[in-house]
């Protein structure tokens, strides 16, 4: 079966301790940068975008996720960075200025070609709607478990 996205266990960060949304984004950017998925310019671009167009999404069961991302020009190779937060961090809600959501999971998207990655993005949003899967991701104790769950949802669906 064709892999829609190559999931990289090294891009999964469990138990991130972040003082703010910005702090979490910086930690996750550093990992994607080390792994050569994004350009240095990605950080400033994603932080700016998050201020103007925030990406927090309130899901079922009071679970919050955020999907920071920015223009393809700042991306070297497609990837998804996964951050599981030790304690929830407030992110601004998409489309609702001034409103925040306690966020448990952050999926930092490195999108190179939206049209090519659309099926993967659709499946990612589909995964957000699966409460059992999201609870398992929120509580996962090993990066390999996160990759296995996401592999099932994004590549084998």
């Amino acid at each position: 079966m064709e892999q829609l996205i190559e999931l990289d266990e090294r891009a999964v960060q469990l138990g991130i301790e972040g003082g703010s949304d910005k702090d979490v984004i910086v930690q996750m950017y550093r990992r994607l940068r080390e792994l050569d998925y994004v350009e240095e310019s990605y950080l400033a671009a994603v932080l700016e975008r998050e201020q103007v167009y925030p990406t927090g999404l309130p899901l079922a069961d009071q679970l919050g996720v955020a999907i920071p991302h920015t223009d393809a020009i700042h991306v070297r190779k497609p990837a998804i960075g996964v951050g599981q937060l030790r304690t929830p961090v407030a992110f601004q809600v998409m489309g609702s200025p001034g409103q925040t959501i306690d966020t448990h999971l952050v999926f930092m998207l490195a999108v190179k070609d939206p049209q090519q990655q659309i099926t993967m993005l659709e499946r990612l949003m589909g995964m957000f709607q699966q409460r059992a899967v999201m609870a398992q991701l929120k509580n996962a104790a090993a990066s390999a478990d996160v990759i296995r769950l996401m592999q099932e949802q994004l590549n084998l669906a």
């Binding site: 167009y53 990406t55 999907i67 991302h69 223009d71 999108v111 939206p114 659309i118 659709e122 949003m125």
Partner: peptide, 15 residues
């Protein structure tokens, strides 16, 4: 329409 036309509007449009 969305912020960057990278992720969310792509998904919303198709849906």
């Amino acid at each position: 329409a969305c912020g960057t036309a990278i992720a969310t509007s792509t998904v919303v449009a198709r849906k």
